[in-house]
Structure formats: C-alpha cells, structure tokens
C-alpha cells in the first residue's frame, strides 16, 4: 500500500532530505523540448502517443526551449541545423539535460562517410548525457534512455557537479553482458 492509501490522518510528519524532494520533483516532470529532425522524431512522437504514453512519467513536450528541462536530439543533425541546435540549447534554462536519440545524432549514422552535410555526432557541439542507440530506436529504447536521465537526476545533490553525478551513475550501472548471458540461457533452456 502506498502512502496515500495508508489513510494518513492529520498531524503526521514525513521526513526526507531536500535533495530527495527536489530530485523527485524534477525527475517526475521532465519536460523535453518538442522538436524532431528526422525519422527518429516519428518514433519519439509514437512514444509520446497513447500506446507508450510518456505522460505517465510526467514527460510532456514543450514548444519552447525556455520551458524545457530536456533536449531529445531525435534525428540527423545537418551542418545547417547544428548552429540552430546550439542556439536552442543555450536558450534552455539550467539544469538541462541532453538525450541523443539514434545513430545519426550519436555519431553520424549511415551518413558517417559520405554525408558531407551531416554533423558526425551531436556531442561535437553540445554535451550529451545519455545516448540511445538504434536506427531508429524503438519506443522501449527511448523510454530506457529517459529512465537513465531520471536515474542521473536521482544521483544529483546540491553541491555535486554533473560530472560527479554521471560518475556515480556509472558506478551503479549493471554490466549488460551478464544480463544478456542470463537471457540467452533462459532462451535455450
């Protein structure tokens, strides 16, 4: 039973830390900026829509960078767009997070060699917190990436830098190889 169901009557006190409350509030209302650049955007919109329903996590696209906490770079970043992406990133209020969605924005994707017009990885121009691989990633992967951003926020504390929070997140992460082996064994059995 949750706290609300437990019939808390009057004169009760909940004790927690400021960090916890702040982090809980921030990670429960991650507002991404509503912009898409290519086919990944279609997948992102599908994730927003009713089947995958990102609103259950409090994730709701905003139409202005001024109101956004998170930038989902969904798609191919061209050299022309790169400068606009920097501008949009700079317009977002801190603390801000960047999720790079799909191969194109991770590293140039299929355009890595002959795509003269494509930026080979959005991390060349703005700092990226979470990379989601895939071409395009399925909604489950994107949700996985968003959960990772939430975990990152959970690691943050007042007076702890983003770099330290990322380090803490890396220490807590599970080696995927172990899980893969486990799944393989279960499949063959």
């Amino acid at each position: 039973m949750g706290l609300l169901d437990a019939a808390i009557t009057k004169h009760n006190v909940l004790v927690t830390s400021v960090d916890n409350v702040l982090n809980w509030a921030r990670l429960s209302s991650l507002w991404p900026m509503g912009f898409g650049l290519a086919c990944c955007a279609i997948e992102m919109m599908a994730t927003n829509a009713s089947n995958y329903d990102l609103e259950r996590f409090g994730i709701f696209p905003r139409s202005s960078p001024r109101q956004s906490d998170l930038m989902i770079v969904a798609g191919t970043v061209t050299m022309k767009m790169a400068e606009r992406v920097i501008r949009l990133y700079e317009q977002m209020p801190e603390p801000r997070y960047v999720l790079s969605m799909g191969s194109c924005s991770n590293c140039g994707g299929p355009y890595w060699e002959h795509g003269y017009h494509v930026l080979k990885g959005v991390d060349r121009i703005i700092p990226v917190d979470v990379y989601v691989p895939g071409c395009p990633p399925r909604p489950e992967s994107l949700i996985g990436g968003l959960m990772k951003v939430q975990e990152l926020i959970r690691m943050e504390q007042i007076g702890v830098s983003r770099a330290d929070a990322l380090k803490k997140l890396a220490e807590k992460s599970v080696d995927p190889q172990f899980v893969i082996e486990l799944e393989r064994k279960a499949a063959s059995a």
């Binding site: 050299m79 790169a82 400068e83 890595w112 060699e113 003269y116 080979k120 060349r124």
Partner: peptide, 20 residues
C-alpha cells in the same frame, strides 16, 4: 560543390569539424 566526382569535404564549417 558536393556532387562533383572529385569533391573533397571541407575540414571545418564555422569552427565545427565536418569529416568523421
């Protein structure tokens, strides 16, 4: 002009590295 057969991409564009 990018579609010329002997085209070589420029090194940087507005300070951003272009080749992989």
């Amino acid at each position: 002009y990018p579609l010329l057969k002997d085209y070589k991409v420029q090194e940087t564009y507005h300070g951003i590295k272009v080749p992989y």
